[in-house]
């Protein structure tokens, strides 16, 4: 018997009206998500926004209280076992067995995924190599650093080469260097053809990795788009200029007002001019205008709003700084 399910052809994840309640709290309150194939989709929000809960429902780890979802065309509620065959899930807290070594963990998960003993062994070796864990392969996991655990966890999620990977806060608690390595790994996965759905509370992470971002706050989706679209939703870019000769300031202001009809902000003593731009492309017009009037500049920069500003504008509150102390990698 073959069941055909209907949804958009290209969707890796297609969810409508997801709801999860814990007691009286609506942790997820009607979220729609569409993740296209081959993209990195970021779910961005502060702690407790409902990111992890959403992911867990899509991964069959939590039953949905409302709404419906399809993963690669398969209904999550109806066919959880099929969905599990399509997914690699890496949780917020490393879900590996602390009683086993890294090598034993990978072999165990390989066996559980139906690999023969020899296949499981060679897959484990491959992954240990790829994630730089050969040296630590036979060490107790209790002695692993946060970054090593996270790498092992991700390695375990890749054993079955799943087409879709869920990463729940993949770099929370990692130091900047380890975070950069994790980002590289995620980019590699996408190059190999994986679709990645990740949650993060770090705006720069969404900016760095995600093709598209959904901003979640208090169980609801408050915005969606590419990082650039989100940024352009809140206000404008600005052009920051510095004149070689501060005496030219008045002339320069005249040029700017003639071209973009905006009042620039001045720092006259240093010859600095900040021009608000509704459209970043107008920056070139301003530069050409100054050149034509022979008003030389020493520097020019277009500044875009950060996702932090975006978040504040969208939700009316900032992302509380919940970033924990970075963990240190032990010296080898």
């Amino acid at each position: 018997m073959t069941t055909n399910t209907t949804s958009q052809r290209g969707a890796a994840v297609h969810a409508r009206g997801l709801v999860k309640t814990f007691g009286r709290v609506r942790a997820v309150d009607g979220i729609d998500l569409d993740v296209h194939r081959g993209e990195v989709f970021g779910v961005l929000g502060p702690n407790g926004a409902g990111k992890t809960t959403t992911l867990q429902m899509l991964a069959t780890l939590l039953p949905m209280d409302g709404g419906n979802a399809e993963v690669l065309g398969v209904d999550v509620r109806e066919h959880p076992h099929v969905v599990r065959q399509l997914l690699g899930v890496t949780g917020q807290y490393a879900s590996v067995d602390e009683n086993l070594t890294a090598r034993e963990n990978l072999r165990l998960f390989g066996r559980l995924l139906g690999l023969s003993s020899t296949q499981a062994r060679s897959t484990a070796e491959d992954l240990l190599g790829r994630f730089g864990l050969e040296d630590a392969a036979d060490r107790a996991i209790a002695k692993f650093s946060g970054g090593m655990r996270r790498r092992l966890d991700l390695a375990a999620s890749l054993i079955s080469r799943p087409p879709l990977i869920f990463l729940d806060e993949p770099t929370t608690g990692l130091d900047p260097r380890t975070r950069g390595q994790m980002w590289d790994t995620i980019r590699e996965l996408v190059r190999d053809g994986c679709t990645v759905l990740l949650t993060t509370q770090y705006l720069d992470e969404a900016d760095q990795l995600a093709d598209r971002v959904a901003v979640i706050d208090q169980g609801r989706k408050v915005a969606e788009g590419t990082p650039d679209e989100l940024k352009s939703q809140v206000g404008s870019s600005s052009l920051q200029l510095r004149l070689v000769d501060p005496a030219h300031t008045a002339d320069a202001v005249e040029v700017v007002r003639g071209l973009v009809a905006e009042q620039p902000t001045l720092t006259p003593e240093a010859g600095g001019i900040t021009v608000p731009l509704a459209d970043a492309n107008r920056a070139a017009d301003v530069l050409i205008g100054l050149r034509q009037r022979d008003l030389p500049i020493s520097s020019a920069a277009v500044h875009k709003p950060t996702l932090d500003e975006v978040f504040l504008a969208l939700t009316g509150h900032g992302t509380e700084d919940t970033r924990p102390e970075p963990e240190m990698e032990p010296t080898r």
Binding site: V74, G114, R161
Partner: peptide
């Protein structure tokens, strides 16, 4: 997912649209 699936004839399956094309799981 080259690894987990050993399809037995008669077992119910569902078609998933993976990157490698449609696959019965």
């Amino acid at each position: 997912m080259t690894t987990t699936t050993t399809l037995t004839p008669g077992e119910p399956t569902v078609t998933a649209r993976t990157l490698a094309g449609a696959r019965d799981l």
